[in-house]
């Protein structure tokens, strides 16, 4: 059985202008020691689905699912107190903006020791020793001194390392990294990704990498799940996905990579992700899809089988027949 198992997860937000469905029937599995990347544009519901699983959404959100379990805990029925014992310990998360995700009023040492004290009940001395050890593990130089620094006294990259150290403090079984490198510059990005993969190798934890950067996906992930407008539209291991994407959206995303561009102008996907009021009746991608026909615009496609990457499309690309024709 997989470490994390989600079936038919939907999240609705109550807004002033009615309900907005941010996540729509998403399935997700993560195994121990595996790196899953969830990719998609802004607003495709990739963070929201993971926040829903952690129980971190604001009260305006309604979460429904057929199944949502982590490491033997049923996250749908779990009590608040019970959830707090799992979240932050076995199930940890790091966020996009390291600068604003750390509390400006407390030293980073205080913030990491708090996790250790609350979850593991370590003594003052043990907390300190473990905090130093963690800082060393995530590559923060001079950890003894850094422990008493405030977030604003350190760089974004260092702060993200602190966030990571905090997240792995209790040796979690699953780490969710929500766009961990978006706010950092390119050289630091590579360092942070290397750090995450090496931590996965050392601790044997599962890693969910939420990103919109295909480069990050190619470099780090083992399995990729593509989300669009709240739906999971395709899922494949990383190599086949890059070689033969089945959903036209995935194909268009890959075409838009500068590294792959062959023409003078970078290909783009016309239009925007549908919002609350312009959700199409049929396939959600149909207004922007160059292959869409009247059927696509009228009916919602069901996911295809695993051989076609569960693609939510009536006419998946790179099938054998298409290659033949």
């Amino acid at each position: 059985m997989s470490l994390l198992r989600i079936r038919n997860l939907s999240v609705d937000f109550a807004t002033a202008s009615g309900k907005f469905r941010a996540v729509d029937g998403v399935d997700q599995d993560v195994n121990t020691g595996e790196i899953l990347a969830i990719v998609g544009e802004s607003g495709s519901g990739k963070s929201v689905s993971m926040l829903a699983m952690m129980g971190l959404l604001p009260w305006t959100a309604t979460v429904t699912a057929d199944e949502m379990s982590f490491d033997g805990h049923d996250l749908l029925t779990i009590g608040k107190r019970e959830r707090r014992r799992v979240v932050g310990k076995d199930l940890a998360m790091i966020f996009q903006e390291p600068m604003s995700s750390l509390n400006p009023c407390f030293t980073v040492g205080w913030q990491i020791k708090e996790t250790l004290r609350v979850h593991l009940g370590l003594s003052r001395k043990a907390c300190h020793a473990r905090a130093v050890e963690l800082f060393e593990q995530v590559g923060i130089p001079d950890p003894e001194r850094r422990l008493s620094a405030f977030p604003h006294q350190m760089s974004g990259g260092m702060n993200q390392r602190v966030m990571i150290a905090m997240a792995i403090a209790c040796k979690p079984k699953l780490l969710i990294a929500d766009e961990p490198t978006t706010a950092l510059d390119v050289t630091i990005q590579a360092q942070i990704l290397d750090l995450l993969t090496s931590l996965r190798d050392d601790n044997g934890m599962g890693l969910v990498l939420i990103t919109h950067d295909m480069g990050v996906v190619a470099e780090t992930a083992e399995r990729v799940s593509v989300q669009y407008a709240g739906q999971k539209i395709e899922e494949q291991p990383v190599l086949p996905l890059f070689q033969s994407p089945h959903h036209p959206y995935t194909a268009a995303l890959l075409d838009a990579l500068p590294e792959r561009a062959t023409e003078k102008h970078l290909p783009t996907i016309p239009g925007m992700v549908p919002g609350q009021f312009d959700r199409p009746a049929g396939c959600l991608f149909s207004p922007r899809c160059k292959f869409a026909n009247s059927k696509c615009k009228a009916e919602q496609p069901a996911p295809q089988g695993p051989e076609l990457g569960h693609a939510r499309c009536f006419y998946p690309l790179n099938t054998d027949e298409r290659i033949a024709s």
Binding site: M54, L56, R83, R84, R85, V86, V87, G88, K89, A92, M93, F95, E97, S100, S101, L102, N103, P104, E114, T115, V118, H119, M163, M166
Partner: peptide, 14 residues
């Protein structure tokens, strides 16, 4: 509504 409050909740604080 700040990010660090979400972080604290993600740390499993009461």
């Amino acid at each position: 509504g700040e990010d660090y409050v979400r972080t604290a909740r993600a740390k499993g604080m009461s």
